[in-house]
Write a protein that binds this DNA or RNA. Sequence first.
RNA 1: UGGGGCGUAGCCAAGUGGUAAGGCACCGGGUUUUGGUCCCGGCAUGCGAUGGUUCGAUCCCAUCCGCCCCAGCCA
Length: 563
Amino acid sequence: MSEEKKNAPSNFIKNMIEEHNRTNRFGGLVHTRFPPEPNGYLHIGHAKSICLNYGLAKEYRGKFNLRFDDTNPTKEDQEYVDSIIDDLNWLGVDWEDRLFFASDYFDQLYEYAVTLIEKGKAFVCDLTADEIRRYRGTLTESGKNSPYRDRFVEENLDLFDRMKKGEFPDGSKTLRAKINMAHGNINMRDPVLYRILHVPHHRTGDTWCIYPMYDMAHGQSDSIEGITHSICTLEFEDHRPLYEWLCKNIGIYCPRQIEFARLNLPYVVMSKRKLVRLVKEGFVRDWDDPRMPTLKAFRRRGYTPEAIWDFNERIGVAKVKGMADWKLLEHCLREDLNRRATRVMAVMRPLKLVIENYPEGQVEELDAVNNPEDDSAGTRKISFSRVLYIERDDFREDPPKKFYRLAPGRETRLKHAYYITCKEVIKDEKGEIIELRCTYDPKTRGGWSDDGRKVKGTLHWVSARTAIPAEIRLYGHLFTQSDSEKGLKEEEDFTANLNPNSLETLHGYVEPSLKDAEVGDRLQFLRQGYFCVDPDSSSERLVFNRTVSLRDSWARIMKKKKK
RNA sequence: UGGGGCGUAGCCAAGUGGUAAGGCACCGGGUUUUGGUCCCGGCAUGCGAUGGUUCGAUCCCAUCCGCCCCAGCCA
């Protein structure tokens, strides 16, 4: 069996890896990792990092680790560990037996710190947080040395040991690297390596009251695990010199840190702070509200992991900060769903339609194809009768040009059923159309006419006597502005840009074959879009989320006309 | 005014001394019992700007312009 391999486009990281392989820098190995901090839920931006790291390991037949960067017990929690693992499994990521935690290395990290002290490369500093800030200098002025910088090694060793033993209160002392307070890169101005935190850790409990900072943990964990390419986002570029300085001065293997631009999507927010507010202040239902950019939300909305992978492969990887386009994500989704989703008929905004010449009480079973893209999906029976519902949008009393659907006196096709002709429009006292009276042509059963007569439009429908009522949720962008901070007035914050119409709830009808649909089932509602069964569904009530609409060229024609 | 990055089409993004890949979007056409899918075609005399080197520059050099990140005992 030959497997057609997609031409994954090149990017600067692959070029770098290939250069490393050419020069044998890492012995031809590629070993990556995804290093989340367990302090929140994964979102679509994390997916880019995951796909990148895991994808590279796969492509170069290397290894991939999952490592939680859990060095700040004040923010982290087991709940997030579980949630992150769940999302990674959903994405199909396999770290085999390599699930690690930075906290697994606390003993080793402590020894590394001792090594630095012994080499005269680190010292215990008694400055307060405020003092440290003042001593650090500014972007343009160099800092000045801490008065504790020249403590003897023995004293530093003793103090650090006592920090570990819990002799000092939070914030009273830190361990700092001894580098250069005049360095242009502020990260090199004697950065804090360890701080005192009398806080229990979700994994190590009360074992520790000193915890390493990011810089003292991340690169060292990479080193311990034999990571070759430590891929992170752009804002860590300034940390690379420190990453390398620490490896070198501790005297351990040094991976290569590579920085790439994180993913940004318009009309949504990705920052943890903002996401929390949306949930806490009730702007969305929860972390998995289908309007959220969290992976949980994408999952609930009906997105497939395959689509997310495809999207990430297509947006590429670079150092240019940019905005990805929802249109591309949606394209990837439709492409995947088109292949796999069963077609069914559902009416979102029902309009009653009575076929006057169809015998009262008669019911017919008609054949319907389940998926024209997949013959193996087979066919099903759908029942036809005298009273139906069609989509309100599929009828126009005064049809504009190029409107192919139903209109007074016009003949059109009911999908899989018959040609019908609209004879009469019935309105209520307010002038609202409440019912259509039509006739059908019995000779067009199945939707064909053998006299060569053609109709332009084909409508979806459900039979009133068998249709199941359903709640249908349509989603729009969370924000009205591509950037949630755009155009805010003086006193407003980003929530002022929330889209008040991001959720529209409809009550329609679906065909009876959906009676036993299960949560998560993905379907195409013919001519409308892809939908999935929401967990809010019960045996009493079916709830569908619109995952994404179908491309709608009629809507585009109308839009153009308006302009 | 310190340090680190980035500027190729509406959005992403390859290429890097030999005359601008690809995808999305968009436009036009064909097929179609989904105005879906699919198929065909179009879409940068141009690579932030200006000089220079060269037979030849998006690529090398110089200068300039624009944007982003960094002053947590967060990651």
